[in-house]
Amino acid sequence: MSIAAVIDISLLVFLGLTAFAILKLRALFAVVMLSSVFSLVSAALLVHLDAVDVAFTEAAVGAGISTVLMLATLALTSRREKAPTRSQALPLIVVFLTGLALVYGTLDMPRFGDPQAPIQVHVAPKYIADTQSEIGIPNIVTAVLASYRGFDTLGEVTVIFTAGIGVLLLLAGFIREPEGLRVQTMDHHLVLRVVTKMLIGPIMLFALYVQFHGDFGPGGGFQAGLIFASAFIIYALVFGLENARKAVPGRAVRLLVACGVLLYGGVGFVSFLFGKNYLNYSVLGVDQVAGQHLGILLVEFGVGLTVAAVMVSTFYAFAGQNQPISDEDW
């Protein structure tokens, strides 16, 4: 058994233990922290499986933003799960049969890592062979994401836009007016304030690096948007929601959410003027590669804008709830 297999198996076993602990524990704060651990470990596994972009995103989403949202929810709801009262037999049988069906389905699968598997010989080889000449950027994942399957990514931006609008619709009616907000600023945390001030700049700089380096390495608009938003969320946590709202008001965030989607969708329309199909970026530059490059840059920026704005507005919506998020809950 190779080293790779040992790493693979031990990470999977660790994931299994974490998942089981999540199932069994009833202290919800512990459950949420463990789910964050689960995401982080699966990010490690994803790196091991060569999916660096995915690992980056999973770490930022699962261990980052999801955890923050869940903690905020717990602070607003309750911290312990009550003991289950109904019978667990039926769910167990259903889940067991589903699992059995899936295991049955694995029997005819190509073996793990097989270079001759159908997915390695059809469709994907073209991306690997032609990205350099057709798109001209080294990161194949970005090339496929933003150009070959760029419409999926427009759909993805729309999904995140939907979530942002949905959270606003659900929670907006309950946001208190700014003067009524009681989210405590962490005044007595001098250390926290100083360190936060020091770190926000570098975090935002890192977000920009991730945004514009996505063509060459792991990263891109989505990850950058999350990092940018997290810098903002730290600011809001330490200096208070009120101050954060002063810096970027809620309505401005809402409009930025829309702008990102409009940018992405709008770039797609430009190709109409040149008689090409929707989302053909080649028309944007003097030659195909230049056009594709510019197109990817623009749409990735649209993605980053929408993601960052949605995360900030979602955080505003949760943090602005009528129960304050106080020190004690963190």
Binding site: H188, M198, D327
Partner: peptide, 14 residues
């Protein structure tokens, strides 16, 4: 180097 002691401090303080 910056964040770990800070977060430990914040948790203890909380």
């Amino acid at each position: 180097f910056f964040t770990s002691p800070t977060s430990t401090h914040a948790i203890a303080n909380a």
